[in-house]
Design a protein around this nucleic acid. Structure first.
Lengths: 304, 304
DNA sequence: CGACATCCATGCCATCAGGTTATAGACGCA
DNA sequence: TGCGTCTATAACCTGATGGCATGGATGTCG
């Protein structure tokens, strides 16, 4: 009796949404396609999984039994898939490095060069992650090491070496009244609308809103963005401002957006992270060593 | 990343056989079809799973990693499937009853009638199993209860109530010299070729060859058969003889085959079996009770 | 040395399953 | 009665799957 994981995903979506129409939208397929697929799964099992009604689709008893088991099945397949890929990359001598934004800034090329010098025959596969994924795939096993901004959610389940720190500045539209000022006290920004990371990023989002440094003053969120490009556009268009590492001024320069120093917020740390399972992995250790050996010169303000 | 369990089965077959050609034969598909499927799985994972050579297909390192994980995935899916079906049958008020050969002989219809009287609205789904499956699907969860011949392999992991016993006779071609005799001492049959159950049935096969009652005398196997029809044909055609319950003379009569009593072999017991997980299942308990209440009259020879 | 056997790979074709759009049918609600 | 919101159905298109025939590589045996 053969089934496609697609079919299981479809089933689960309908079970969760309680509606073919909504599930179809979520899965980016048409509603008739879903109708057929669900019916097919039912034929395969020889039983009704849903009771149809004008109000939507409700799980039957056997449907419920299946819905309880399917998530584990899908998760297991996903894990097998990732582990296989991991073995493949290792066998192909590829180190997968995830990173966020500008990684280790200007130090990044030096780190990679040092690594390829130390491990001839190995290739570094750099993978940029969206901000909604603060571990850049490390937590999911998609990469072997990651260059990350601290703190990030789940930090205590991973190994981290801090590389350097840099001050947090603020990104403003160039039309903003503060755009001319030299250094802006963070308190002056409390009532400004901010561009935030998606809510599911939790502590990460709070950190870049500097929620801890507002004395309980509530945050105004002007927009939620996931990609640097969108982020820059939204700031340039005046929907909000945002804290950003000083280096963004170099890596994410754009007409209409200016970066200004901010006083009264802690600096942002950059670290290299890896999974505890790789503690003894010599290739990962080498990469971490290269990171530590090639950290940028200390920043005068944050590391006196 | 979606996969079909078919693809995983194909992969596993090639991994186990070490050859596309052999795996294709085992899977009843053409070799080019398998070639394409394996290549597709490799594309999906983005890595080579086998090294091809004239000698066959050998797993690569990532292939090995996948091959280790796939059996558990397939087993889990199978279990989810069976459990869902089980819930479905229960919800539909169907009791799945597996049986071997003639089940409880003439008592069978009485048992079913008693059960439907006790559980109005319930239906009994009788499923005959091949001899290669001595638990009639009970061990695999395909049925809820089973009417079985004792002893059977795995008997101690299931609950069993013995219903009755009947003597074992011998089935012979009517051209056989012994076909005229009244009672045949088993010792006289030691050197006859026997028709046996498939080897994988282990103790079950031995029991019907009466291996324990030959004083170590070796068994001559004349043929291996899985289905009553084939079994009868093979006996009629003189390829061998076989022990069989006395009731076979009534349930499996066929021109060219005669049944004769045998002395010196223990009788065959018939029992009703269920899974320990169903100890508290009222429907299963009812069925077992109906079996016990409707056992056939005692047999004069085996139960004096 | 050449014919053969045994692998896997490729090309071509028929079939089928999955997807899409358009539309029908059921039913509550204003 | 007409509208909005569900699911089901019909007609059609595309791509994947499997089968057959065949090619190419490489040992093996007479």
């Amino acid at each position: 009796m053969d089934v496609d994981t697609r079919l299981l995903r479809y089933f689960l979506a309908v079970a969760e949404e309680g509606s073919l129409t909504h599930a179809a939208a979520r899965l980016f397929v048409s509603q008739p396609a879903l109708t057929k697929q669900i019916r097919q799964l039912e034929n395969l099992l020889g039983t009704r999984l849903f009771t149809r009604s004008r109000a939507g689709m409700a799980l039957t008893e056997p449907g419920q039994a299946l819905a309880e088991r399917v998530p584990a099945l899908l998760a297991d397949w996903d894990r097998a898939l990732r582990e296989t890929r991991q073995v493949a990359e290792r066998a192909a001598r590829v180190l997968r490095v995830g990173f966020i934004a500008s990684a280790a800034n200007e130090a990044t090329p030096r780190i990679i060069a040092a690594f390829t010098r130390r491990r001839p025959g190995w290739r570094v596969d750099m993978r940029q992650a969206a901000w909604s994924n603060p571990t850049a795939g490390l937590a999911d096993g998609d990469v072997d090491v990651a260059l990350l901004r601290l703190p990030f959610p789940g930090q205590d389940t991973l190994r981290v070496e801090v590389l350097f720190a840099e001050p947090r500045w603020v990104a403003l539209p160039d039309t903003h009244p503060f755009a001319m000022r030299d250094v802006i006290p963070f308190r002056d920004l409390w009532d400004e609308p901010f561009v935030a990371a998606p809510p599911e990023t939790g502590g990460w989002r709070d950190y870049w809103l500097a929620a801890d440094e507002r004395d309980g003053h509530p945050v105004r969120v002007g927009a939620v963005m996931d990609q640097p490009d969108d982020w820059l556009s939204v700031i340039a268009n005046g929907y909000g401002i945002a804290l950003a590492p000083e280096s963004s001024a170099r890596f994410y320069a754009r007409p209409g957006v200016v970066y200004r120093p901010v006083s009264g917020v802690s600096p942002s740390q950059v670290g290299v992270a890896w999974a505890p399972a790789d503690d003894a992995n010599p290739v990962v250790r080498d990469f971490v060593r290269c990171c530590l050996d090639n950290r940028p010169p200390l920043h005068p303000e944050t590391d006196p």
